[in-house]
């Protein structure tokens, strides 16, 4: 009660700006946010079960702001590192499954996260949030494209954004690599996947089916 009783939301904004907030960007409250003005600390511990609407808004925001690509990296940042709604391990498990199954990774990941956090409605919120708002935006961009394209600065800004966005993917890749068991076979499988896809440019389907099946079978035998 002593701390900021009258402006809990302002306090959030401040926290969010300084990057220390576990909780929210302005405008999207945790469930407990406004329960009482004096319970600021309460609202800072993230709610374990976000609502489907809240998830929809988060996925929409990411879908609408993720210039330059690397969306899975944005999701890792948001759900694991900032909000602590999922463990790194749980996220990476979902990512591995999302990559092994057909379908656009980000969409798979959004459904996975949504389902884990909020069941069926969470999955629907993830799917619609990551696709519908950006789909509308991309059509608007297409309509204005000829105007936008005339400016050199548009291209420069996008090239710069794409470069910075690689950081999201690379840091996620390093996080994932750190989680690979430190044994000969898993490390070899990781390197072989990298070489097969990155250097030799073999079709992903066969790499995932081949190396994936081999690696899973070995893991099964070890358990």
């Amino acid at each position: 009660m002593a701390e900021a009783p009258s402006h809990p939301r302002m306090a959030h904004r401040q926290l969010a700006k300084h990057g220390g907030a576990q909780d929210d960007a302005p405008g999207k409250g945790g469930i407990f946010r406004d329960s009482a003005s004096g319970r600021l600390t309460m609202s800072e511990t993230s709610p374990p079960h976000p609502s489907a609407l809240q998830l929809f808004l988060i996925f929409s925001r990411i879908g609408l702001t993720s210039f330059g690509g690397g969306l899975s990296g944005w999701l890792l940042r948001e759900f694991v590192e900032d909000r602590h709604w999922m463990s790194e391990e749980e996220f990476l498990n979902g990512l591995a499954i999302s990559q092994a199954l057909p379908g656009v990774n980000v969409k798979n990941m959004a459904i996975w996260i949504g389902y884990r956090l909020c069941g069926r409605w969470g999955a629907i919120a993830g799917f619609t949030g990551i696709i519908v708002p950006p789909a509308i935006l991309i059509i608007l961009i297409a309509v204005g494209f000829t105007t936008l394209e005339r400016f050199d600065i548009t291209h420069l800004a996008l090239d710069g954004a794409a470069a910075a966005a690689i950081g999201l993917s690379l840091s996620m890749g390093l996080t994932a690599a750190r989680r690979v068991p430190r044994r000969l076979v898993p490390l070899l499988v990781m390197v072989a996947t990298f070489v097969a896809v990155g250097v030799l440019r073999l079709p992903l389907v066969w790499v995932v089916l081949g190396l994936g099946a081999f690696s899973v079978a070995l893991a099964y035998a070890r358990l």
Partner: peptide, 29 residues
Amino acid sequence: QRALELGLRPVAAGLILAAVYVLMLTLDG
């Protein structure tokens, strides 16, 4: 399930790093 999680993990890591590598090579600028 544990086998899938553990077994796919190195493949997933390799895939992400490969994607980054390809992006780095083809980056405009």
